[in-house]
């Protein structure tokens, strides 16, 4: 099977420690970047939507907005793949607690925000995007599996695609189950051909030999604390400008990624 090649045109990143992709670069260069405000700004959302939106939506829209701005694309033309391992955990916690006590009192807004495609739904609405959009999950492999879905769209449809992978921190009894103790979100704009905004190209191939790419602290801890942060080996590669990493795309399948700089 021949390798797949895609071009990276934008990167978004947000965690309690890192405000954006530049902050990851700074972190990897040995600095301690200034942490962002507690709530992601999600400037793409109109102010009234921003006040009402759950944090899961703010996080996804924050990283999506960063990556799209870097890419120079109009958001309305990008197909969207939004991945999340757990969806909105605070809403799941609220819904299950309410259903256990007073099911008839369930909030209609929280219910419609509970669908796994809530974040991508809001994103397509605020960006007037009529392109295909999808919401996916694959447990700890959600980023890798979402990347494969996005790469499939880029190459089969020959169109640029926005990939977002994000999970907010859990709460309530569910936290013990998900082990998701801090928020993490990231986004990539992927394209089939190089352009003026191309940062780098990636060669990807599926492999049945499973390798976990090592990470230095504190990145290794962040990866442990959030399934979406399994993207960090690739994000670190993008920050450092070269090398190879491997991500899980399923319980039994890996994606080997080689990076080449584009001059």
């Amino acid at each position: 099977m021949s390798a797949l090649r895609v071009y990276i045109e934008g990167v978004g990143l947000w965690s309690p420690q890192l405000a954006d992709f530049a902050a990851l670069r700074s972190q990897l260069a040995g600095n301690i970047p200034d942490p962002p405000p507690a709530r992601p700004a999600a400037a793409t959302l109109p102010p009234n939507e921003r006040r009402r939106a759950p944090e899961s939506v703010l996080l996804a829209i924050e990283v999506a907005g960063q990556a799209v701005a870097m890419s120079g694309h109009s958001a309305s033309e990008l197909a969207c793949v939004f991945a999340s391992s757990h969806g909105d955990q605070p809403i799941t916690d609220y819904m299950c607690a309410t259903l256990a006590q007073a099911p008839a009192e369930l909030s209609p807004i929280r219910f419609h925000n509970s669908v796994h495609n809530a974040a991508v739904g809001y994103w397509t609405i605020v960006t007037s995007c009529h392109a295909p959009s999808t919401a996916v999950a694959a447990q700890r492999a959600s980023f890798g599996a979402g990347l494969l879905e996005a790469v499939g769209q880029v190459l089969a449809e020959q169109r640029p695609v926005l990939l977002v992978c994000s999970d907010t921190a859990g709460g309530g009894p569910l936290l013990e189950i998900t082990g998701c103790t801090q928020s993490f979100g990231c986004a990539l704009v992927l394209a089939p051909e190089s352009s003026a905004t191309t940062m780098t190209s990636l060669q990807l191939s599926l492999t049945t030999s499973r390798v976990i790419s090592p990470l230095a602290e504190p990145l290794a801890h962040w990866r442990e604390a959030n399934a979406s942060a399994t993207a960090l080996p690739l994000l670190a590669l993008l920050a450092e400008g070269r090398g190879r990493c491997q991500l899980d795309v399923a319980a039994t399948l890996g994606l080997q990624i080689d990076m080449e700089s584009v001059a």
């Binding site: 969806g87 669908v115 796994h116 495609n117 991508v120 959009s133 999808t134 919401a135 996916v136 999950a137 694959a138 447990q139 492999a141 599996a145 979402g146 494969l148 879905e149 599926l206 049945t208 795309v249 399923a250 319980a251 039994t252 399948l253």
Partner: peptide
């Protein structure tokens, strides 16, 4: 999807799509 992958003993790409 994780259950069905295990039950069918499949080892290829495995993805849940959840767009309502």
């Amino acid at each position: 999807s994780a259950f069905v992958a295990a039950a069918l003993d499949l080892e290829g790409p495995c993805l849940t799509i959840s767009t309502a």
